[in-house]
Simulated assay, not measured.
Amino acid sequence: MPEGHSIHRLARQFADCFVGQALSVSSPQGRFADGAAVLDGAVLEGARAHGKQLFLDFAGDRVLRSHLGLYGAWSFGGTDRFRGASSIGAPRRIGEREVHDHAAPAGPLLPPAPVGAVRVRLVGDEGWADLRGPALCVLEDSAEAEAARARLGPDPLDRHADPAPFVAAVRRSRRPVGALLMDQVVVAGVGNIFRAESLFRRGLDPMMPGRALDEHELRQLWAENAALMRTGVRLGRIVTTDPADRPGIGEAQAWPGHAHLVYKRRGLPCRRCGTPVAAEELEGRSLYWCPSCQR
């Protein structure tokens, strides 16, 4: 599932490439036909992310809210003047690229026929965006969208977010901190990779009950996730290793083989102490940690 950094990259891309334009909106698949009819021709006024949810704000108090889930992705294309990423979301084989690979020739914008089950297609002045496979795609007014956002926990990528609600929610819970980090009502945008890597970097046992952690530890954990996620936004990849963990390998070359400290490294030696990395399922997702570094 795309984690919060990917959705913030999506918001940035929509802001850079489509805000201020009257967009042609359609639903080739048909499952968003009514919403597309309402939005067709409306000006996109803003794009924002909160956790794993994307909010596209259209003129007329209309918001297209989406959640990519496990399989969703936005793909993009356009004229030779369009400089967006080719795809952001679940299809990792496509990747998140700063410059798309298949620009159309110069001249009028001629989007290709939709490929696959395209829930929503947005077409602007120089490019288009196709949404496939989302877990959620709804049309709301601003009050409804704000109510949905308010149900989520604070987002570490929001520089103005107050971590106090996150700290309070964890400290009153008996659930393992490794489970609480994945609960979007507790903290928005942290997924399986950031969970494993941030807990390792803070030396915290993922099975420790939330209530066993003090406020200082939790504020450090919040700051760790914020820093890791900002790096993810910048790189378009989740890279959590430090230079000392990958001697001679630069940050840009770290992904995938040298990008993570414990995630998907079950049985391999810990990069810090050599102990085999452990893994087990926690609330339906594989959790990775070092039994020595995270006592």
Score class of each variant (00 low, 15 high):
His5Met: 11
Ala90Ile: 09
Asp158Asn: 06
Arg295Gly: 13
Ala223Pro: 03
Trp128Glu: 03
Gly191Phe: 03
Arg211Tyr: 15
Gly257Lys: 03
Ser26Thr: 10
Asp205Glu: 11
Leu109Lys: 06
Leu213His: 04
Leu199Asn: 01
Val177Phe: 03
Pro105Phe: 07
Leu54Lys: 00
Leu287Ala: 06
Ala22Ile: 05
Ser142His: 13
Arg48Asp: 13
Arg119Pro: 03
Ala188His: 01
Gly210Gln: 08
Val19Thr: 10
Glu280Arg: 14
Gly133Phe: 04
Arg266Asn: 07
Arg174Asn: 11
Val115Phe: 02
Ser286Phe: 02
Tyr71Asp: 15
Gln253Ile: 11
Arg83Glu: 09
Phe32Glu: 09
His258Tyr: 04
Phe14Glu: 05
Glu283Asn: 14
Leu180Asp: 05
Pro156Val: 02
Leu268Cys: 00
Gly51Glu: 08
Ala168Cys: 12
Gly191Tyr: 04
Ser173Val: 11
Lys264Arg: 12
Ala47Tyr: 04
Ser87Thr: 13
Gln29Ala: 12
Asp162His: 14
Gly284Ala: 03
Pro165Asn: 15
Val177Ser: 00
Gly77Thr: 04
Pro209Val: 03
Ala244Ser: 15
Trp222Tyr: 01
Asp242Met: 15
Arg31Leu: 10
Ser87Asn: 14
His8Arg: 13
Met182Asn: 14
Trp128Gly: 00
Ala196Ile: 01
Met207Trp: 15
Gly35Glu: 04
Arg175Gly: 09
Phe82Gln: 06
Ser87Ile: 07
Val190Thr: 08
Thr231Met: 09
Pro154Phe: 04
Thr79His: 02
Leu136Asp: 14
Val186Arg: 03
Phe55Gln: 05
Val115Asn: 05
Arg201Val: 13
Pro2Thr: 12
Gly203Arg: 15
Ala223Asp: 10
Arg272Ile: 13
Gly72Phe: 04
Arg246Met: 13
Gly250Asp: 07
Arg121Asn: 01
Pro108Gln: 07
Cys273Asp: 13
Pro134Thr: 09
Ala164Asn: 12
Gln184Leu: 12
Ala104Ser: 11
Leu181Trp: 00
Ala11Thr: 08
Glu140Lys: 00
Leu139Gly: 04
